[in-house]
Design a protein around this nucleic acid. Structure first.
Length: 549
RNA sequence: GGCCCGUUGGUGAAGUGGCUUAACACACAUGCCUUUCACGCAUGCAUUCACGAGUCCGAAUCUCGUACGGGUCACCA
């Protein structure tokens, strides 16, 4: 009995060899220096911002080098699988215009290196595992969960390293005959990799972010195939897939750094060079006094769906993530305004190696306000309309009904060298323009300005004002009239003078303006009043004034 | 607990032995401008780079130790 018999017993139907697969997936024909990256999410129905950040880096690296960016679904944990998960991931990539060059989705396969879904690659994994068994680098392990738990406990209490290695790797010592017999008796088993590593020995590993690291060799006989569904574990699938798909750069979270020894040993066992690794810092979040990994349960902003619901511009989200990815990005972009993030050359060395960045939603808001302020009014209109279509039907109808008018509203203080920065996302627009629509304004008005709140005085101001108001006045004429009114009613029209002697007057031109402002918007803070009045028109202004007489 | 990674202001950070009396951006504060808010402009915000020791003419930058934070140690990825 040989390991070959054992391999045939375990995988009787596998007739291909690893050579066949090597031929089936030849070296990619790409130009010199082109990089191949992949986004390899698990279909859990949820896209974490950290995963998205990895995908962004993958995408940028591939585009920078005219390489390939592909999508691979890692669904080897069938327990966690969620049915809509594939579309969640694919739609986000689509929304952000980061579509992969190769993928498999919705019955369609693009690319010559598939299948791109791990559960469909079972045969390939089995072929590689079969090969390992034949050459004596993998073996079946019959240890029960209980036995392993016990072993772990005893290792803990005796202060030994935890794991399946050395003397603890009991199934490793089984003879081929014993193994075959157990399998024939239908004893459940997993397949373990047979490690040759020495934990005392360290090797050099180059992480593109952190530089050269000195880490101990792996000596654990880790599991490469699970017993339940015969699917490979992450480690093994990572090796097989990234090898056959010719990935050149693996971008993944820092939590994978500690499994590097395992991966390196696997690549070595097949005599293949591992890809380059970029271990990205985790995105963290401050929780009271503590700092922790941003979590999908506690932090809505951890999920990419948050940005969709609030409708942050995709450009802003990308921009804010890019500033975390490479902090020199911001300065670069400022001096290259006409360029996009794809023109920026990502440099892993410039990525922060420190524990992780606290995600700052304020920073996103700022970036986003700047971005939206530079759009034209009709672009803003289109984007807000798209948002409302999905999330706010009433507002959608108003926007559609008053298209020209709405564009004019969005244009207030926009076409100037330094436009107003009001909106951080499309969701917050309504909160700032609602009073421009009679349907939202309603029939009664809540007056809130403490300084002047005498009913008669208000009526007097408004009545006098409406008589003087002329829709065709230009801004200067308009403001001169406000000043005229101010003086007529015994207020001060010169702010400098008023500030010097506030007690000499009933109030100032600022107060008069505020009364008018509140009467048409209910707010004391709004964009340019002249523009608001002009857009409202005399008739509607009067109607609103009448609510206060 | 073992192993690995890290530690520069409220936040993200630049910085790779002298050009740093530590960039830039966000946040915050004050003032100016102004019919309000915002914008803009100006100014302020780390005498110091977790702490301690060492190397050096010279250290945030190199070495060692300590402390703290994070990651990992699954038939999860």
């Amino acid at each position: 009995m040989t390991t070959k018999d054992l391999a045939n017993l375990i995988f009787p139907d596998i007739d291909k060899t690893i050579e066949d697969y090597k031929n089936m997936y030849p070296e990619r024909n790409l130009k010199e220096g082109a990089k191949v990256t992949r986004f390899a999410p698990s279909p859990t129905g949820f896209m974490h911002i950290g995963n998205f950040q990895s995908a962004l880096i993958d995408y940028v690296i591939a585009k920078n080098s005219e390489g390939v960016f592909y999508l691979r679904f890692e669904d080897t944990d069938q327990m966690r699988e969620v049915k809509d998960a594939y579309s969640v991931i694919f739609n986000i990539l689509n929304d952000y215009k980061m579509l992969p060059d190769e993928y498999e989705y919705d019955g369609k396969t693009v690319g010559n290196y598939g299948p791109y879904v791990q559960s469909k690659r079972k045969e390939i994994y089995h072929t590689f595992i079969k090969h390992l068994i034949e050459i004596g680098r993998a073996y079946p392990c019959f240890c029960s969960k209980e036995k392993l738990d016990e072993m772990r406990e005893s290792q803990t209490s005796r202060k030994k390293r935890i794991g399946y290695y050395g003397v603890y790797a009991t199934c490793r010592k089984l003879s081929v005959e014993e193994q075959i017999e157990k399998i024939k008796n239908n004893e459940p088993y997993v397949i373990r990799f047979k490690s040759n590593g020495n934990n005392e020995q360290k090797f050099k590993f180059d992480d593109l972010v952190r530089g050269t690291l000195l880490i101990p060799e792996n000596d654990m006989d880790f599991i490469i195939m699970k017993s339940s569904d015969k699917l490979p574990t992450y480690h093994f699938a990572h090796f097989v897939d990234d090898y056959l798909m010719h990935t050149t750069h693996v971008v993944r979270g820092e939590e994978w750094l500690s499994s590097v020894p395992i991966h390196v040993e696997l690549f070595n066992a097949f005599g293949v060079k591992p890809p380059k690794y970029i271990h990205t810092p985790l995105i963290l979040k401050k929780d009271g006094e503590n700092v922790r990994k941003i979590s999908k349960r506690k932090d809505p902003e951890a999920s990419m769906s948050y940005y969709k619901e609030k409708c942050y511009p995709i450009e802003s989200v990308i921009e804010s993530l890019m500033t975390i990815i490479n902090s020199n990005y911001e300065q670069w972009h400022e001096s290259n305004l006409e360029k996009t993030y794809l023109d920026f050359t990502f440099s892993p060395k410039k990525m922060s190696a420190s524990g992780g960045a606290l995600y700052d939603i304020e920073k996103l808001n700022n970036i986003s306000k700047n971005f939206i302020s530079k759009l034209s009014a009709s672009e803003v209109y289109d984007r807000v309309l798209n948002w409302a279509k999905i999330y706010d039907n009433d507002f959608y109808e108003l926007l559609s009904k008053y298209k020209e008018y709405s564009i004019n509203v969005f244009n207030i203080e926009r076409e100037q060298k330094k436009p107003r920065k009001d909106y951080e996302n499309y969701f917050s627009v309504k909160k700032q323009v609602w009073y421009m629509y009679d349907e939202l304004f309603g029939d009664s008005l809540e007056y809130n300005f403490d300084k002047i709140n005498d009913k008669e005085e208000i009526s007097k101001i408004l009545k006098t004002y409406i008589e003087m108001y002329n829709e065709s006045d230009d801004k200067d004429t308009w403001f001169n009239k406000v000043k005229e009114l101010t003086e007529k009613l015994g207020y001060c029209s010169n702010m400098k003078e008023y500030k010097l002697n506030p007690d000499k007057y009933k109030g100032s031109v600022a107060d008069i303006s505020t009364v008018i402002r509140v009467a048409v918007t209910t707010l004391t803070m709004t964009p340019d009043l002249y523009e608001i009045l002009r857009l409202l028109g005399k008739e509607r202004i009067e109607k609103r004034f009448e609510m206060l007489y």
